[in-house]
Nucleic acid binder design. Structure first.
Lengths: 347, 347
DNA sequence: AGCGGCGATGACAACGCTGTCAATACTATA
DNA sequence: TATAGTATTGACAGCGTTGTCATCGCCGCT
């Protein structure tokens, strides 16, 4: 029976080698998918490895090769659900390729940021880095890492100029679509809560918003645009600002779900019914968007798929010196999710 | 052709040794906090290490010592905010001790669970494991891991019998307090939504609820107790059940915040005002509890601190530094957080 | 048949650190 | 001052893998 009792002792390469009747070096070649191995030999080795349930020892591997089998996710204070989704996708990609995921929380404003990352990189045997927003937009960091030969990829960078690979959604277009939807529901005075100014997406979303107003022939009323910081509290504050006036906007588009939740709170406080007297929309489709009352109209991003994709790319970069002519970015589709927090403008 | 990028090279132990004028073995001793080093020597080595910014190479370390410098967090589908909080605390403890955190999502119902964990353990050089609920309650898993000599700790286990270290809060007492608070607000008919039956905490919370009713001389109306599964959707469903009747309870205690959020949704749907006609309470004080309207009365657990503490303990266990007579569990304090979703019973 | 070339393989020395155990430097005591 | 006993320290051999380079066949070609 193949039901072997699980053992905690690892099988070494020598055992596989003698089982297959080859040298350990050949086993190593097979395990690393190197080309120069006769196919019959490869099969024999693979069979032996499988039978013995051999797994290369990662410590020995990275010691000998000075390579890393780690991907480090670098983030600063993300929303919990974003982190979870991203991790799930990243872990998925890692598992497929036999890598592990490290977590590197950090402070994007720290002057020692690059230094810290370098420390991480050298300490851990040169893992690849995944820079999530807003780190993906720190030009100086990106350039220094590049100069030092650190392999990295970026998530949702504003500036796709840098040749490092990235994933993103078209924030501008998404915000445009959502705004147009609101306009088409009859809203003429729409409040906008900008996202954290250090996140590239904030600017893009704002531009999408303005673009839709323009294309629909509505002017931009600057007094209806307020600066938020992606937090629930900032959403409350902005909501208070926008809703204080008697002639408050009939719709508010917040640059993320948490701020939209804050706006809803204030609307409830003020006794403004949603959506009959006020429509509220968010962005990201985090679980939050379903916990609020009413549920939020928002934009869904395929965060998990994006994470999986970009981490997979990163691993490719770490391994192969991927072809230089390949396009460096992937843009994923978004989806407008309409829920109860938006409705036709009342008159 | 072989263009050499400026690369980051790690400082090795030899350099520190010669800088400090000792053997590499002595440096090794200092880095591992071994006792048998004269204090003056230690200082000299530490100074040299600091000056050169030396960091031991973890791969070499674990290869040579057959020890792991990893802690693996094993979890099944947790709430995002729990995961984030826990990770933050766990990472904190790891950083302090120079360890790294691995993530191991898994399916607690999988028959191959133990096998998978064993694979992880052997592949990764015997990391310590942190079992989060409901994995901490799988007796068979716990016993097998123990038998195989895997080092692990448990989070919020029902059954603290097993000698492995654990952290928890007193779920029973917390639920008791929250229930008593509701009763003291004048509620006599209180609905209860049980948590996922596979989570140990569910039972404890239910017991606390019943205990408070009993101590306050209120009978348990079984028709007001429904089974949930910790999800928002199950909360909605249970809420619908409890609120369908004309004489619905005047308060509902859900075993976690997400289910409480579901109840609020239904209450809104049915036009039942909260808290004037219905009080709703949750458990966990996740961010969700502030996004709902009204904000949720709930129980706060110091998840981050608990994570830090238990991971720190795990590392101690991994290093064999733990005194045997030490108690194996730590119970953290909880806090009753009263917000807008609960109020006096209407008459 | 002899020769160069190349694909396939193996021998062996790292990789940076820790475990073992021997060597040396102290300390207290007689 | 000598001596045993203890505290410090270092030499050296791996840990399991990969990089380098030598070797071995086998091929086609002269």
């Amino acid at each position: 029976m193949n039901k072997k009792k699980p053992t905690t002792r690892a099988v070494t390469i020598d055992e596989v080698a003698s089982q297959a009747g080859v040298s350990i070096k050949t086993v190593s070649r097979v395990m690393n998918r190197e080309a120069a191995v006769r196919d019959s030999t490869r099969q024999r080795v693979l069979a032996a490895a499988k039978e013995l349930n051999y797994k290369p020892n990662p410590a020995a591997r990275s010691l000998a090769s000075n390579r890393s089998y780690f991907v480090a996710m670098v983030y600063d204070n993300p929303s919990a659900s974003y982190l979870l989704d991203f991790q799930t996708g990243a872990l998925d990609a890692c598992r497929e390729r036999g890598y592990s995921l490290l977590l590197q929380p950090c402070d994007y404003q720290s002057p020692q940021l690059v230094e810290e990352l370098i420390t991480l990189v050298t300490e851990r045997g040169h893992p690849g880095l995944v820079l999530t927003p807003p780190l993906s937009d720190l030009t100086e960091v990106v350039e220094q890492l590049d100069r030092l030969g650190v392999k990295f990829v970026r998530v949702a960078p504003v500036d796709p100029e840098h040749p490092s690979p990235y994933v993103a959604v078209d924030d501008r277009a998404a915000a445009y679509d959502l705004t147009r939807y609101l306009i088409d529901m009859g809203h003429k005075r729409i409040g906008f809560i900008k996202g954290h100014p250090d996140h590239g997406a904030s600017q893009a979303r704002y531009e999408g918003f303005r673009g839709a107003l323009r294309d629909r022939g509505l002017g931009l009323d600057k007094s209806l645009v307020v600066q938020g910081f992606f937090s629930f509290e900032s959403g409350e504050q902005c909501g208070r600002t926008l809703l204080a006036r008697k002639d408050h906007p009939s719709a508010i588009f917040a640059s993320n779900d948490e701020m939209a939740a804050g706006v809803l709170h204030i609307a409830h406080d003020l006794g403004i019914d949603v959506p009959s007297r006020l429509s509220v929309a968010g962005f990201d489709d985090t679980p939050v968007s379903r916990y609020t009352w009413p549920s939020l109209t928002t934009i869904r991003q395929p965060v998990e798929a994006m994470a999986k994709s970009i981490v997979s790319t990163l691993i490719t970069v770490m391994r192969d010196e991927r072809k230089k002519d390949q396009s460096n970015g992937t843009v994923f589709p978004y989806e407008l999710v309409i829920r109860g927090s938006t409705g036709p403008a009342s008159r």
